[in-house]
Amino acid sequence: MIYFDKVSKVYPPSMVALQDISFTVEPKEFVSLIGQSGGGKTTLLKLLLAEEKPTEGTIFFESVNVNDFPRSKLPELRRRIGVVFQEFRLLSNKTTFENVAFAMEASGRTPEEINRDVPHVLELVDLVEKANHFPHELSGGERQRVAIARAIINQPDVILADEPTGNLDPLNTWEIIRILKKINELGTTIILATHNKSIIDSLGRRVITLEKGKIVRDDKEGRYVL
């Protein structure tokens, strides 16, 4: 489903972020990316979103080369990939409902579909009562749940979560992980970049370890080892 083929990324003049990365992600997999800060996790996710271009190698998303997408077609690719960031990145002057609805509006869904789907997804992340709150009126955990709702609303094939729990306390962390696991059980592929040892150990899923831009370990039922 996702295939990285000998991908390297060099930031000029000579900062090597990724070097000769090759791996495959199958549908419905839950893959964790671990490694130190600056290890290349975020760069890898940016390449998959076509936010940046690889210096060498190719990235396939369902047998389509991501870098062959013309800029005007990128929105179509991105509607099939949901993203969750460490710093939430909600639209500050939109309410919870509008933030989630924005992703649907952007992909041209009808008002009927929006009014049907958004409450349903807000229920899934337990935010129905905060539907009309603005991001600054929500706690960190709540904001991240809004971000997850926004990421899954278009029923993407894959969710990219870049340290989604990095700014959260343990209780909220587990809540987010619980939701991600649930989404995965419903059939969505998840790629999770994280620093959190206990999350990885409790998941017992595939773990790819990056070190200085290279894959040093890829375990089917991995534990957090650096």
Binding site: L49, E51, S72, L74, P75, E76, R78, R79, V83, R89, L90, L91, S92, F102, A103, E105, A106, S107, R150, A151, N154
Partner: peptide
């Protein structure tokens, strides 16, 4: 500007 970037990443077209 950052929010414009976020809109791009959640799949909004430039016109939208």
């Amino acid at each position: 500007r950052e929010e414009i970037g976020v809109m791009r990443l959640v799949g909004a077209s430039n016109r939208f």
